[in-house]
Structures are given as structure tokens and as C-alpha cells.
Computed example of a mutant assay.
Amino acid sequence: MAIPNQKLQQLLEEIEQKAMFSQQQINIVKSQMAAKNRESRMVQLTATELSSLPKDTNVYEGCGKMFLWSPSDEVKKRLATENSELKADGENLGKKLHYLETTYKNSKDGIEKLLRAGQGGA
């Protein structure tokens, strides 16, 4: 049983749109992952520098256009929390990327199947 050309064309367009959307989302997620990795690296470097300072060293954090004194222990805790949140975000983005790549692959496979079915029916 052959698929009518009009129906085949409609299915093909829908699958192509889904594939294009998935590809766009893949690029967005990859750039978000790169940004999270950079942010995580900065937090790790800051934590490393903070650990190398003597315990009684004054630590200042930027707040807009000014700097505020913060106890180094609180800064270390904040950095640890921020780092764990960044890792969790990275894992979630990895899962989303895997899903989008699977969707994209399935869309490409669907297009190929439709084209083969259309050629077989012609």
C-alpha cells in the first residue's frame, strides 16, 4: 500500500520541522553547557584561591559597583553550594541534550523511511 504523495509531503514537512527544531535546541543546550562549565571552572578556581589564603584574611565580594566584606567561611560555603548547583544543572542539560539528539536521530530516520516508502510506491 503506497502513501499518497500529498500525505507523504505533509508528513515529510512535519518531520523536517521537528528535526530542525531539535537541531536548534541541541545548539542552544550545547552553548548552555559550555557556559555552565565555564562558570563551574571559575567557582573552582575561586575556591582554590580562597583555600590558599590564611584564615584571618579579609575577603570581599562584589555587589554591583561596590565590594562587601564577607567571612571567608561563608564565602567557601556559598562557593560549594554554587558549584553543586552548577553540576546539577550540567547533568540536567546533559539529559536534555541526550533527549534532543535522540529526537533528532529519530526524525532523520523517519525522513529516510518516508522517502524510501515514497520511492517504493512511485
Score class of each variant (00 low, 15 high):
67 F>C: 02
21 F>Q: 13
115 L>Y: 05
3 I>S: 10
88 A>I: 10
5 N>K: 14
44 Q>T: 03
29 V>D: 03
2 A>C: 11
28 I>Q: 12
21 F>L: 15
2 A>S: 15
76 K>T: 04
26 I>P: 05
49 E>Y: 02
102 T>N: 11
107 S>H: 03
1 M>P: 11
87 K>R: 12
116 R>Q: 14
8 L>A: 10
117 A>R: 13
73 D>L: 00
25 Q>V: 14
118 G>I: 07
56 D>P: 10
50 L>D: 06
8 L>H: 11
11 L>E: 09
82 E>A: 01
44 Q>I: 06
112 E>A: 11
33 M>P: 01
114 L>C: 06
122 A>Q: 11
96 K>M: 08
110 G>H: 01
25 Q>T: 15
21 F>C: 05
3 I>H: 08
17 Q>H: 08
45 L>T: 06
103 T>Y: 05
108 K>G: 04
88 A>T: 12
26 I>D: 06
5 N>P: 09
103 T>C: 12
33 M>T: 12
87 K>T: 08
46 T>I: 03
19 A>W: 06
43 V>G: 04
55 K>E: 13
60 Y>P: 05
29 V>Q: 02
62 G>A: 06
76 K>F: 02
28 I>W: 03
74 E>W: 00
119 Q>L: 09
62 G>Q: 02
2 A>M: 07
19 A>L: 09
100 L>S: 02
68 L>K: 14
79 L>N: 12
5 N>Q: 14
30 K>T: 01
40 S>G: 14
55 K>P: 03
104 Y>P: 01
50 L>H: 01
59 V>G: 06
105 K>A: 14
20 M>R: 14
78 R>P: 00
40 S>I: 05
122 A>N: 13
122 A>I: 09
117 A>Q: 11
50 L>T: 03
55 K>I: 07
100 L>W: 10
114 L>Y: 04
115 L>I: 12
92 N>I: 01
122 A>T: 07
98 H>K: 13
30 K>A: 07
71 P>N: 12
9 Q>T: 10
52 S>M: 06
6 Q>P: 03
14 E>T: 11
122 A>S: 13
99 Y>V: 08
99 Y>A: 15
49 E>T: 04
71 P>H: 09
